[in-house]
Design a protein around this nucleic acid. Structure first.
Lengths: 333, 333
DNA sequence: TTGAAAGCGCTAACAC
DNA sequence: GTGTTAGCGCTTTCAA
């Protein structure tokens, strides 16, 4: 079932069928009618691979994220998919599973499959460099959320420095004098900026930094980190976390061990995933404008796909603070 | 930068380059070395589109799910991606956003892009029929979790009937005499089987069915349903939910309105998403063997990609009950 | 407006 | 083990 079958049935050339079906060039109404009918009768659907080879474009965009289980990335992916769809493009989604080697493989695969462009949230600030840099040299590429330095590409994400200012100011205003920070090992831009922001703003507000614990972005690491804080001696006034998953793990251990939040300890997260409002107690967190990040990423990529070469853009969008019970009034208080 | 450039540089034919790089046929060590070096020097990476056109296969599998924000599907997707990767295939992921029209469009697009096969969790038991049936006629297709009846394809999912037996027996054993069920509108196989299972097993155990509320699989619908139950008068002894998102919404409203779970009301979910253990109180739920479902789906698809045509397989895998505080002892009790 | 024909980059016969 | 060559299905010159 190829374009030739349709051409024969409609009594025209393959060129005419192509033009009629794609609408690329005008075709007489009578012929259009015939071709449309013939294609319909035959149940013809064009071979996108052949078309892509000929046109050397696939109308497909690849996206690589460290995890599709993390609701933050899920929301980002949904936003990107939606925005792309409106631009008539498809999304080819890959998970790098936080593994630079797998990430490199995914990028090679996307380039081999001739996607028109790539949106990536790189795993690692250093170990992702070569693969991302190579890919950016092959085709238009936009980094989201995290970025690797030294790659000539656009970036869109949240203003991490501002975000930590919102968190620390909120805690300091509540009278916090000592605070710990639980984050991921310092391997990418976002993480580094969040830790740096925490250090800077606590210093500015005269809040003593109790501990900075580095692990990974997961509930399990949050649980582990909270256990370590408990084992280390007297708790600080607050624990700020670099993402909501960590914070949810921290809250879970608090509930298990009888640490009352917020009476004994204030806890904050980052991302405002849907489950942040459902924990015990509901979590105060930083809301990222994911839809705007996704939309901007697609916009930048579309621009990069166009003819004119613009200099790399970096846009840091403003986050907002969502205050819930984990730093607020306890229900029984 | 094509295979011809590599061939010229290596001083061999394009066919030899193809053979050397793909390993499809033996090549002398010296030539292999030359070709590899030439390709490396040039930074050559093969054009997968051209290769796909020639071989008429893409080594790519398409997957369509109703939502990538639902952690249940996220876990399923991760499992499928992992299993495919081991089989040397890539995943092309699409979200149908629970919209049959969008789902049909995604299927058309996947077929046009010549994926080798499709794994789909259909949106709707009836309205997905035509598109899924058409796609199944074009290429190998496996349905997961949900299915549309009357399509000649494999299916893998959980044994919903058994699952509801586990839930109802657990509740009945705890002394529950009246129970409500909160689910999605009856539009697909899973949902129907869960409601039917609830009805049947409550009847068997002599538990009176208070109400069956049908909406959608979301936290918001869980909230809304619980509000309706509160407004309707005396609460039943238990509320069973058709998925964890609904149950989390129910629990949230309970917490807000002072309904003590499990003292005043028992609540159960379905799926055992990661957040089911983090709610207030932690949620008793049915654990689906997602990894096994994903693995089995890929296995069935691989079989369907092979030469021999087997009759459609239906495998319903056994779930297990995970008991947590929402039906257990209250911490203060 | 339409058709003939070239060719996108690759791989698989088929020869040697 | 290697080269020559045809052709996957489509789009797009070019000519009519």
């Amino acid at each position: 079932m190829t374009i030739r079958d349709v051409a024969e049935r409609a009594g025209v050339s393959t060129a005419t069928v192509s033009r009629a079906l794609s609408g690329a060039r005008p075709v007489s109404p009578a012929v259009l009618e015939q071709v449309t009918r013939a294609a319909g009768d035959l149940g013809y659907s064009a071979n996108g691979i052949a078309s892509a080879l000929r046109r050397s474009r696939t109308d497909t965009v690849g996206m690589v994220v460290p995890s599709i289980a993390n609701p933050f990335f899920t929301a980002l992916v949904e936003g990107v998919e939606h925005a792309l769809q409106q631009a008539g493009r498809q999304l080819f989604l890959c998970s790098s599973r936080s593994d630079p080697a797998l990430e490199a493989q995914r990028l090679r695969s996307l380039v081999a499959r001739q996607v028109d462009g790539i949106i990536i949230s790189p795993v690692h600030g250093v170990r992702s460099h070569d693969a991302v840099s190579w890919a950016a040299g092959q085709l238009p590429l936009v980094q989201v959320d995290r970025y690797v330095a030294g790659v000539d590409s656009d970036w869109v994400g949240v203003d991490d420095h501002l975000a930590l200012r919102l968190v620390v100011d909120h805690l300091a205003d509540l009278g916090v004098r000592t605070a710990a920070f639980v984050s991921s090992t310092l391997t990418n831009s976002s993480t580094e900026l969040r830790v740096a922001g925490f250090q800077e703003h606590t210093a500015r507000r005269g809040v003593a930094v109790d501990q900075v614990l580095l692990g990974e972005y997961s509930i399990d690491w949050g649980r582990e980190a909270m256990r370590r804080l408990l084992a280390a001696g007297p708790l600080p006034d607050a624990v700020a976390c670099a993402d909501d998953l960590i914070a949810l793990g921290v809250l879970q251990v608090c509930a298990e061990t009888g640490v009352s939040v917020p009476a004994d300890l204030l806890v904050t997260g980052f991302d405002d995933i849907p489950y942040a409002a459902l924990s015990d107690p509901p979590l105060t967190t930083v809301r990222q404008p994911q839809d705007r990040i996704a939309g901007e990423a697609v916009r930048l990529l579309s621009a990069a796909l166009g003819p004119d070469r613009a200099p790399p853009a970096r846009s840091a969008l403003a986050p907002s603070l969502v205050v819930r019970s984990s730093t607020g009034i306890t229900p029984s208080g």
